[in-house]
Design a protein around this nucleic acid. Sequence first.
DNA 1: TAGATTGTTAATCGATTAACAATC
DNA 2: TAGATTGTTAATCGATTAACAATC
Lengths: 219, 219
Amino acid sequence: MKKIKVPNAPSIRRMPSYLHKLYHMRLEGKSFVSTTELAEHMNTELIVVRKDIALVGLAGQRRIGYHINELISAINEYLGWQDTLTATLIGAGSLGTAILGFDEFSRYGLRIESVFDCDTNKIGRALRGHEIFDVATIRTRLKTAPPDIAILCVSAVTAQLVADQVIAVGIKYIWNFTNVSLTVPDYVIVQKEVLAGGFAMLAVKIKNDRSGDCLPIKE
Amino acid sequence: MKKIKVPNAPSIRRMPSYLHKLYHMRLEGKSFVSTTELAEHMNTELIVVRKDIALVGLAGQRRIGYHINELISAINEYLGWQDTLTATLIGAGSLGTAILGFDEFSRYGLRIESVFDCDTNKIGRALRGHEIFDVATIRTRLKTAPPDIAILCVSAVTAQLVADQVIAVGIKYIWNFTNVSLTVPDYVIVQKEVLAGGFAMLAVKIKNDRSGDCLPIKE
DNA sequence: TAGATTGTTAATCGATTAACAATC
DNA sequence: TAGATTGTTAATCGATTAACAATC
């Protein structure tokens, strides 16, 4: 599998939180933020925010801070979120439904264009305004204009099979919500680990907290 | 907010993937793994796996590898997954339903004991074997035996309110699936960022891939 | 023995943190 | 001017990677 080394991953993971706060501040009618404000809200150190903003390459105004609109644009550009990415959602179970209903994605430039499932009870029905298509029709339906991303919310047993199909259709990016390690060609990029990794972190935090192994530093 | 500095976070995030593979191999009747095998499956470098295993403190057998059962135990112990953590799920929407249906959690030692929602259409109905209780009854229902964790899958507008209630009940750990930055007392630990952070990473990978900014190294 | 593996120590790299300069 | 802020450079820390020793 192709490996893409993405620099500044920790900063990238923090970006959506900044955006969330910035949009909120804009709604309140504010037009400038200081790193102090952002840091307080994010519960992190000032210098972390500073470095992150330096990364997106925006100049602020000393003693005043950063223009909120400019900062929003700069972060979105840094994340590539000003260009819309299209996706197909495969698997209309509860997780798929949740993802489809995650409104923020449209703001992040992700547009889910089609939904597939293999359950005959679901096929043909509508889910949040999308008709659910038969998984068996992936090839015929997506061949002419394949979306950028396939979002996989299928069962573990069908994950590889579905991955093969979306790859055959020309999709290069897979966001894999199953916990199966997919075997894919070199040019396909798979984004993995959503739930389990998060719980692992939480469990270890709890464990350390209880045993007093960790200083009560921030997070 | 209290900050817990958890060392080896990247390793911890990889652990569930090792476990997944190990359980699979055990089902196949195997009793030993080498780091080579694990690395191949995880699509990572051998030395990464080696270091991670060293972290959980298990000795292997040269030329043979690690005993699968021992390695499973060691990882589970490292993650604190051999002790069951109890949780209450607040918000029985599609995301909450998906989490409730994530079978792996029981294997990871997370037991969701109760489910709450504020929707009168849902209250009193059953969801995957759990009766949905009225959010308004959180205090009375959980006061006597509060679970360890509150899993928040509520709307952004009610997130803080619900957080206050679960804290009042004595819950110390919150797994926050909303994208709201909660204000909580110092002794409460919040685990945040699930979806948006993941998409930020994927978007940047795609952006870098398209612009050719990154060498095609692995991931 | 040779080779595959674990085990260990050192080197590198990158992210975080600290310190301080610049400026409005 | 003083102080709050951005901007920049250096120091520290920790994770990854490399190199090699040990051993069955």
